[in-house]
Computed example of a mutant assay.
Amino acid sequence: MQAVTEIEPLPDDLIAWVASQRAAGHSSDALRAALLQAGWEADMAQQALAAAGVSRPAPLPLTTAASASAAPGPDLRGTPLRIDAGDRRVAVLQTVALPRAVLFGDFLDDTECSALIELARPRLARSRTVSLGTDAEMVHDDRTSDGMFFMRGENPLVTRIEARIARLLNWPVENGEGLQILRYRPGAEYKAHYDYFDPADPGSGTILRRGGQRIATLVMYLHEPEGGGGTYFPEAGLDVLPRRGHALFFSYPDATPASKSLHGGAPVVAGEKWIAVKWLRQGRFD
Results as ranks from 00 to 15, higher is better:
D195V: 05
L93D: 15
R88P: 15
R214G: 11
P172K: 03
L169E: 02
P156L: 08
Q213T: 10
I165R: 02
M220A: 08
L222D: 14
H140Q: 11
S114T: 13
L168S: 12
R126Y: 02
L157F: 04
D141F: 05
P99A: 04
A91Q: 15
L222K: 13
R143A: 12
A97M: 14
G212Y: 02
T144P: 13
R210E: 05
A85G: 12
A91V: 12
Y194S: 04
P99K: 09
A136I: 05
L103S: 10
V92R: 04
Y194Q: 03
M148N: 01
A136P: 09
P156K: 13
D198C: 05
G133Y: 04
W171M: 14
S114V: 06
A85N: 11
D142F: 02
E189P: 07
L108E: 10
G147E: 00
F107N: 14
M151E: 14
V219L: 15
E177R: 03
S145D: 14
T95E: 11
Y194W: 06
T111Y: 00
L98F: 09
D106A: 14
Y194M: 06
Q180F: 02
P156V: 10
G86P: 11
E162A: 06
G147C: 00
V96C: 13
D142W: 00
D109R: 01
R210N: 12
C113A: 11
L98A: 15
R160N: 07
R167F: 00
R209Q: 12
C113I: 03
F150H: 14
Q213V: 03
P156Q: 07
N175I: 02
E112P: 02
I117N: 11
G147I: 00
P186T: 05
L169H: 05
M220K: 06
P202C: 01
M220C: 11
M220I: 06
P99V: 06
L157Y: 01
E189K: 08
P202E: 01
N175V: 01
A97W: 09
E137P: 01
G153N: 12
I207L: 10
G147M: 00
D87K: 07
A120C: 03
E177T: 02
R167T: 14
K191T: 13
R185K: 14
A163E: 10
